[in-house]
Design a protein around this nucleic acid. Sequence first.
DNA 1: AATAAAAGTGGACCACGGTCCGGTTATAGT
DNA 2: ACTATAACCGGACCGTGGTCCACTTTTATT
Lengths: 193, 193
Amino acid sequence: MLRLSGNDGERADAARNRRLLLEAAVRIVELHGPEKLTMDEVARHAGVGKGTLFRRFGNKTGLIQALLDQSGRDFQAAFMSGPPPLGPGAAPGERLKAFGEASIRRCEFQGHLLRAAQEGPEALGHPTQRLSRQHLGLLLREAGTTGDVELAAYQLAAYLNAGVLVHLTEERRMPQERLIAGWNELVKRFLPR
Amino acid sequence: MLRLSGNDGERADAARNRRLLLEAAVRIVELHGPEKLTMDEVARHAGVGKGTLFRRFGNKTGLIQALLDQSGRDFQAAFMSGPPPLGPGAAPGERLKAFGEASIRRCEFQGHLLRAAQEGPEALGHPTQRLSRQHLGLLLREAGTTGDVELAAYQLAAYLNAGVLVHLTEERRMPQERLIAGWNELVKRFLPR
DNA sequence: AATAAAAGTGGACCACGGTCCGGTTATAGT
DNA sequence: ACTATAACCGGACCGTGGTCCACTTTTATT
């Protein structure tokens, strides 16, 4: 029987192409902005067929998530096991504030990509989003919030949606500080007094 | 100089085609569901060219908004000038609760269309959504909520987003009553105690 | 009734996301 | 080295949303 020897169950040529594709995508975004990121162009710049691109990343959302993967992992690691106030060690209320602030700041540079990755009917079911809500729910419970905590997590997460945040900053021209202050107010409303 | 005589600045043939197109769209949605609502099919069933369809409604979102227009106008009229508790006359807190409940119930039958109409980067800037947020902000102010009321309206509206609501009901299988109770809890958090 | 301009019309055309499948290549076992 | 097979590859192809523009129809004016 045949077995794979690549470290991730991925053949060497496939791994090479994944690298080429990601590099091409990064170059396109840096040079021409996220709106020019089309699947055809990525494949073309990588010198690879379109089928390969879709086999590697599933769809455009998957490609964008791969692009965001590094900073996404960093972010997850930070709030799951990093230093306070984002990570464990601080009071849950402080961690909630830090979580929102970090999310909002992340939108400054990656807002458009994040929005693209978060739109579509299935986005809310994606593991990354689930993890965020789970984390929010956990902190709320730790903080002693009563009632339907699961829904409360959805309510908090809804405000941190990249589509909302980008609209607020670009269309409504609200500075980050205001969005962060708004988040802190919101969090305070959820904490028991 | 030429002038239009149609009541809405629309030529007779154009009005006829608008009617045909809307009827075709309604038929398609009723018969085969919203996912089968393609612009080509609508034009074909209406016996009209695609260019005409796009001239009338701008884009697919515009067509869907036109489909939702009737119930949307009813809803707006209800909370702007209808009977309490949705309309003026009731306490602002009660009106807020009624607003959310009505929004959530509307999603039961029109969720998928509403979601389609609300996705995309420009949806948050659409007049309908602006009006909703304005209304929420007004009620919050009337209720004596302090702080950044404008952002608070965004925070409330974010939970009533059709994408969120549909996900909650269909993916997470939450009953409407729970979503409504969650809304009431949320509203309570925004009211001064 | 004739006229001219504004408004409307339709379908060819385009870009993009996504699928499919016959041919190719890397890999494990011999 | 040879072979079998799973994984990979590329690009032709499709559906959909949206644009474009030469042609037709309505309408106010005369």
